[in-house]
């Protein structure tokens, strides 16, 4: 079943049951966060352990993209750390 989510300002079609990481990677993205020193980060462990894939979902920071299933209308933004 198709739903729509907003990824960094763009409407994107997604499937019910996909994780945020699944949506982002299906869309061809391999990274979306920047680390403390400005390095790009995406999925690394894929099972919720490494926290590399954090995103902002509906204004809430620090959501593991690989663990969170998308819901119709979700707003997904990319989070930046305070750079050292």
């Amino acid at each position: 079943m198709s739903i729509h989510v907003n990824v960094a300002g763009e409407q994107v079609e997604a499937q019910v049951g996909q994780t945020v990481a699944g949506v982002l990677m299906s869309g061809g993205r391999v990274s979306w966060r920047t680390s403390r020193s400005g390095q790009p980060r995406g999925v690394f462990c894929g099972i919720g352990v490494c926290f590399d894939c954090l995103v902002v979902v509906n204004d809430l920071r620090d959501v593991r993209a690989c663990q969170r299933r998308v819901v119709d209308g979700d707003r997904i933004e990319f989070q930046e750390d305070d750079h050292a």
């Binding site: 391999v30 990274s31 790009p40 980060r41 995406g42 999925v43 690394f44 462990c45 894929g46 099972i47 490494c50 690989c66």
Partner: peptide, 8 residues
């Protein structure tokens, strides 16, 4: 990016 664990 592009380096993953095998589990990922």
């Amino acid at each position: 990016p592009g380096v993953f664990t095998a589990g990922a």
